[in-house]
Amino acid sequence: MLTERERERYRRQIPLFGEAGQQRLGKARVAVVGAGGLGCPAALYLAAAGIGEIRLVDPDRVERSNLNRQVLHHEGDVGRPKVASAAEKLLAQNPGLTVSVRHAAIDEKNAEDLIGDADIVVDAVDDFATRYLLNRAALAKGIPLVHGAVSGFDGQVTTVLPGRTACLRCIFPVPPPKESVPVVGATAGVVGLIQANEVIKYVTGTGDPLKGRLLLWDGRSASTVLLSVERQEDCADCGSGAHR
């Protein structure tokens, strides 16, 4: 049952998926891995939507050069762990939220533990080595993964449903090089919010997930394209190429 306060707070969205949908949001646990350009907008809108628990994972501290896009971190947060800065803003936005934070980097050993018992994982990290770790951990635990990435004015999003749709490695068998690319904050905002929208849809059972489809965002022309992507039989992470 929703409280009166909750009914009021979520009044403008409850008609979209009913009180049952709102209750599902309130029970959902979402792991947001990365509290940077994608993780900040994604987590903020998930908090506002009434997600029950957000688990934030990030090893970094706030730098001044983060502030053009990592909108949960403010000037006074420079030097603080990103997870602490982000958790504070999320709780101020919605005191009904539970936030748990892990000030840690994902590695081979801790990946499954860090995403824990999440219902869904938001990939908001900034390199493919970490994404492959998340991909494998999410596949192993059967947890859906919402991938996002940005560069400049460009971005991409897809939702992986383990064992049913193309996984990250099916789509990106070879990682693009890690580079410090320029990015305009609004690009990360657009992509991070498409990721938040995917989570809200998944939890409430609304609409069609971006499964088997890769959405490309081109901010220069303000256009999106959907490419269909298929599971690869010999995928190193989810197919015959996987050694578990």
């Binding site: 990290v125 971005g155 693009p176």
Partner: peptide, 10 residues
């Protein structure tokens, strides 16, 4: 034919 380089930032 479509040509697409993945992006990696976050």
């Amino acid at each position: 034919i479509a040509l697409f380089p993945p992006v990696a930032g976050g």
